Amino acid sequence: MLELRPSCECCDKDLPPDSAQALICSFECTFCQACSDQRLHGTCPNCGGELVRRPIRPARKLEKFPASSQRVVKTAGCPN
Protein backbone atom coordinates (compact mmCIF):
# COMPACT_ATOMS: atom_id res chain seq x y z
CA MET A 1 0.00 0.00 0.00
CA LEU A 2 1.30 3.48 -0.83
CA GLU A 3 2.55 5.54 2.09
CA LEU A 4 1.20 8.83 0.71
CA ARG A 5 4.06 10.87 2.12
CA PRO A 6 2.99 14.34 3.28
CA SER A 7 5.52 16.60 1.56
CA CYS A 8 7.91 17.26 -1.32
CA GLU A 9 11.42 15.95 -0.68
CA CYS A 10 12.94 19.02 -2.38
CA CYS A 11 11.03 22.03 -1.06
CA ASP A 12 9.02 20.48 1.82
CA LYS A 13 5.74 21.75 0.33
CA ASP A 14 2.70 20.10 1.90
CA LEU A 15 1.19 17.38 -0.28
CA PRO A 16 -1.99 16.15 1.41
CA PRO A 17 -3.43 12.75 0.43
CA ASP A 18 -5.85 14.37 -2.04
CA SER A 19 -3.21 16.50 -3.79
CA ALA A 20 -3.14 16.28 -7.57
CA GLN A 21 0.30 17.97 -7.41
CA ALA A 22 2.10 14.99 -5.82
CA LEU A 23 4.41 12.86 -7.97
CA ILE A 24 6.17 9.65 -6.98
CA CYS A 25 8.70 7.18 -8.37
CA SER A 26 8.45 3.41 -8.00
CA PHE A 27 10.15 3.68 -4.57
CA GLU A 28 7.60 6.30 -3.43
CA CYS A 29 10.05 9.18 -3.33
CA THR A 30 7.63 12.11 -3.36
CA PHE A 31 7.92 15.49 -5.07
CA CYS A 32 5.63 18.37 -5.97
CA GLN A 33 4.74 19.14 -9.58
CA ALA A 34 6.78 22.38 -9.57
CA CYS A 35 10.01 20.71 -8.40
CA SER A 36 9.50 17.83 -10.82
CA ASP A 37 8.99 20.18 -13.77
CA GLN A 38 11.51 22.92 -12.96
CA ARG A 39 14.32 21.09 -11.19
CA LEU A 40 14.05 17.37 -11.74
CA HIS A 41 12.66 17.21 -15.29
CA GLY A 42 10.42 14.26 -14.40
CA THR A 43 13.24 12.08 -13.04
CA CYS A 44 13.71 11.01 -9.42
CA PRO A 45 17.08 12.32 -8.12
CA ASN A 46 17.34 9.35 -5.75
CA CYS A 47 16.88 6.38 -8.08
CA GLY A 48 16.71 7.85 -11.59
CA GLY A 49 13.17 6.56 -12.07
CA GLU A 50 10.25 8.29 -13.73
CA LEU A 51 8.06 10.57 -11.63
CA VAL A 52 4.34 9.99 -12.16
CA ARG A 53 1.19 11.41 -10.57
CA ARG A 54 0.48 9.83 -7.21
CA PRO A 55 -2.97 8.23 -7.02
CA ILE A 56 -5.49 9.75 -4.64
CA ARG A 57 -6.79 7.41 -1.97
CA PRO A 58 -10.58 7.75 -1.55
CA ALA A 59 -11.40 9.82 1.55
CA ARG A 60 -13.52 7.02 3.00
CA LYS A 61 -10.45 4.73 2.99
CA LEU A 62 -8.12 7.22 4.72
CA GLU A 63 -9.67 6.51 8.11
CA LYS A 64 -8.74 2.83 7.97
CA PHE A 65 -5.60 3.32 5.85
CA PRO A 66 -4.17 6.75 6.81
CA ALA A 67 -1.49 8.62 4.93
CA SER A 68 2.02 8.78 6.36
CA SER A 69 2.90 11.71 8.61
CA GLN A 70 6.67 11.20 8.25
CA ARG A 71 8.26 14.02 6.26
CA VAL A 72 11.27 13.14 4.10
CA VAL A 73 13.38 16.12 2.97
CA LYS A 74 16.69 16.02 1.13
CA THR A 75 19.08 17.86 3.46
CA ALA A 76 21.43 18.64 0.58
CA GLY A 77 18.52 19.91 -1.52
CA CYS A 78 17.65 18.94 -5.05
CA PRO A 79 19.54 19.69 -8.24
CA ASN A 80 18.65 22.87 -10.10
Rank of each mutant, 00 (worst) to 15 (best):
A67H: 09
V52D: 10
S68Q: 09
P17L: 00
G42D: 01
S36G: 06
D14K: 02
F27H: 07
L15R: 05
C8T: 00
A76W: 02
L51D: 00
D12I: 02
S7F: 01
A22E: 03
H41K: 15
D12C: 06
Q33V: 08
A67W: 01
D18G: 03
A34P: 01
N46D: 07
Q21E: 13
E3F: 07
R60P: 00
E28C: 01
F27A: 02
P79I: 11
S36I: 04
C25M: 06
N80V: 12
N80Y: 07
L51V: 11
I24R: 03
Q21F: 04
A34S: 15
S36C: 11
P45A: 06
D18H: 05
E63G: 15
R57P: 10
F27L: 09
E50K: 14
G49L: 06
L62A: 04
E63Y: 12
P79R: 15
L15V: 08
R60H: 13
A67R: 02
T43Q: 08
G42Y: 06
R53Q: 14
V73L: 11
N46H: 08
A22K: 00
P45R: 01
V72H: 05
E50D: 14
S68E: 04
R53T: 13
R57Q: 15
E28P: 02
I56D: 06
A59I: 12
A22V: 04
T30M: 03
G48I: 08
L40D: 00
P16N: 07
E50Q: 14
C35I: 02
T75K: 13
S19G: 03
G42V: 02
D12A: 07
G49R: 03
S19K: 07
L62S: 06
A20I: 12
P66K: 12
R54E: 08
I24M: 05
K61N: 09
F65H: 14
A20F: 10
K74T: 05
Q38L: 15
G77S: 12
G77T: 10
P66V: 13
L62Q: 12
K74P: 00
F27D: 01
V73Y: 08
D12V: 00
G49M: 06
P66C: 10
S69W: 08
H41I: 09
R5K: 07
C35P: 08
E9D: 09
A67G: 09
A76G: 10
C25N: 04
C29G: 04
F27Y: 10
F27P: 01
E50R: 14
C25H: 01
L15N: 01
R5N: 03
F31Y: 13
C8P: 02
L40T: 05
P16Q: 06
P16C: 03
C29H: 15
L51W: 09
K61T: 02
L62I: 10
R57N: 10
D18C: 00
P16D: 04
T75R: 12
P79M: 11
Q33G: 02
S7V: 02
T75Q: 15
E3C: 04
R53W: 09
P16F: 08
E63W: 08
G42K: 03
P66F: 08
P79N: 14
C47Q: 09
E3Q: 11
L2H: 11
R53S: 12
Q38S: 14
E63S: 12
V73R: 11
G42F: 05
P55G: 13
C11S: 03
L40F: 10
K61W: 14
P66M: 12
R71Y: 04
S19D: 08
P55L: 07
P17Q: 01
R60I: 13
G49S: 11
T43I: 15
K13C: 05
V52L: 11
F65R: 13
